[in-house]
Amino acid sequence: MNNSVITVRNLVKKFGSFVANDNLNFEVYAGEIFGFLGANGAGKTTTIRILSGLSAPTSGEVIVAGINASKKPEEIKKQIGYMSQKFSLYEDLTVKENIMLYGGIYGMSKSLIKERTENLLEKLNFRDYGNKLIADLPLGLRQKLAFSIAVFHEPKIVFLDEPTGGVDPITRRQFWEMIYETASRGITVFVTTHYMDEAEYCDRISIMSEAKIVALDTPENLKKLYNAATVEDVFIKIARPN
């Protein structure tokens, strides 16, 4: 198919005798929305940490944006963006200050930050909010801003952690449209979640259970394969096979 932007081969991660990732193999393609699912404690977090250069694999090969994760984990960090529902923006800073801060962290020049900030505020209809504190913004707006900031430095891959859990249906749709738009520009979107209805929006999903990847395909194919109406049913059938 397309060229892959994440390649994982025989990835094993152990903590002492505990195996958190047991021989994972998968590829994520450029411009794809990839859903990474699993129950709490299935080993998702461990994998994400390895993919984002925060932790080294015990064995196996992990290549992210052309960089080997065991050899140059620091390089990976420059190529990725990250957004989580829990933590993303500093509430006591204004919208512009937050953008400035993240742009600065990724080493962007002042003029580039300024130019892109203007574009961003324009695109989000955020003109009036530029000098407002994050704390004063409605939840939905914060969410959208957080995502825009995560891709502000045009990373190759953006990791999203449960991005739309708990937001209202309209914001949620607007958010997914932003994700689609981002993906159509060639940025890979890697979504971790245990909200199964979020998974329905992804191009392909993988389901992790007890340190292994037990299913990987498009939501449609998985639903056919397991004869299920929703991804949630697929998940339940995998986790409780009777």
């Binding site: 129950a39 859990g165 409780r240």
Partner: peptide
Amino acid sequence: TTGVDAVSRS
């Protein structure tokens, strides 16, 4: 059911 996996939810 917030923060609980699909199986436990059902």
